[in-house]
């Protein structure tokens, strides 16, 4: 099921995120939601961002569109986007509500959200939302935009698109809604699609259909796909490359093969062991990670994962921040293990 991996090291990326840091200001002070997040996505590549809820995946997605909701604020880093014209812009240098930024959102970068019902206005038809999305970025007449909408809905495998286009979201099934949502996100043929847990709210069969659809779209359009999920089963199905996040930091990254066959970080290993059907889980029975993800207000000292890590070394992991280890190119992990002798 694992798709072929284009060699992302050699291609110049469409998106590269460097040293991204996001803070939330609350009464007590500042919570760091993201810290030193680095990754790239190339044309035709699917990058999966994996983590439990609260790991910062959603904030990462919103940072790329420069729309972190208050009280959050991007405090450091750069996000470089290569546009169709070949020029490269730093998204974080744009005004969040400025015209330039709006020209990128929905045009260069499309986004699909988790809850199709909540993310579509309940009182507007699918067609009117689609037409508006197209007209926001190009000068096309209403009739023409409508034709585009019908064609796009057909492409998404929605039956009777000419009728469905005048449906309200509540008149569509969950799967159809998400297909419509994807059609709207792709309305302007973006070069990068961000999908924030697009299949989480769907039942298993529908989930598989929507995933297949996304793989097909990517094959035909060669767009880059940033796929956010907590479900490693989904990752195995569609990812080329994987980034594992824990408490706002990337703890491990690599190709999907490397992550599944040779996970280095104890957190990744634990995640793999807790899903059925992987080599790690089969070796020692199904596994649950002890404890739960701590809130960002109480970040543990040293390695943030050490209280839940079964390989933690007292005196090291709970004291010192772990180093970033780069095996090659994008193959990295952040851990004290294996311990090296000092001196």
């Amino acid at each position: 099921m694992v798709a072929d991996s284009p060699d992302s090291d050699t291609q110049s990326p469409i998106l590269s995120v460097r040293g991204l840091q996001v803070e939330f200001s609350i009464f007590e002070g500042k919570l760091r939601a993201l810290e030193s997040v680095d990754f790239t996505v190339a044309e035709g590549e699917t990058l999966c961002v994996v983590g439990e809820s609260g790991s910062g995946k959603s904030v990462t997605a919103r940072s790329i569109l420069n729309m972190v909701p208050p009280p959050g604020k991007i405090t450091r880093g750069e996000i470089l986007l290569r546009r169709e014209t070949g020029e490269t812009v730093d998204i974080l240098a744009q005004k969040p509500r400025g015209k330039a930024m709006r020209g990128i959102r929905g045009n260069d970068i499309g986004m699909v959200f988790q809850e199709p019902m909540a993310s579509l206005s309940p009182v507007h038809t699918i067609g009117s939302i689609f037409i508006e999305a197209v007209q926001a970025h190009r000068k096309v007449g209403r009739a023409e935009a409508r034709e585009m909408a019908i064609a796009a809905m057909a492409d998404m495998g929605i039956p009777k698109p000419a009728q469905r286009i005048d449906y309200y979201p509540f008149q569509l099934s969950g799967g159809m809604r998400q297909r419509a949502m994807i059609a709207i996100a792709l309305a302007n043929r973006p070069r990068l699609l961000i999908a924030d847990e697009p299949t989480t709210a769907l039942d298993v069969t529908t989930q598989a259909n929507v995933l297949d659809l996304m793989i097909d779209i990517q094959d035909s359009t060669k767009m880059a796909l940033l796929f956010i999920t907590h479900d490693l089963g989904v990752v195995a199905e569609i990812a080329h490359n994987v980034v594992v996040m824990y408490l706002g930091r990337i703890v491990e990254s690599g190709t999907v093969h490397e992550i599944f066959e040779d996970a280095r970080h104890p957190y990744t290993q634990a995640l793999l062991r807790s899903i059925p059907g992987t080599p790690l889980s089969e070796s020692g029975g199904l596994y649950t990670i002890k404890g739960s993800i701590p809130s960002r207000g109480r970040r543990p000292q040293g390695c943030p994962f050490h209280p839940r890590c079964d390989q933690a070394v007292a005196g090291v992991c709970d004291v010192e921040a772990p180093p970033l280890r780069r095996l090659r190119g994008n193959r990295t992990y952040v851990c004290h293990l294996p311990l090296e002798l000092k001196g």
Binding site: L65, M67, P69, R102, G103, I104, R105, G106, N107, G110, M111, F113, E115, A118, S119, L120, S121, P122, E132, A133, A136, H137, M181, I184, A185
Partner: peptide, 12 residues
Amino acid sequence: KPYVEAARARGL
């Protein structure tokens, strides 16, 4: 609400 965020993500 999410639909406001979604509209923002479409560049409106």
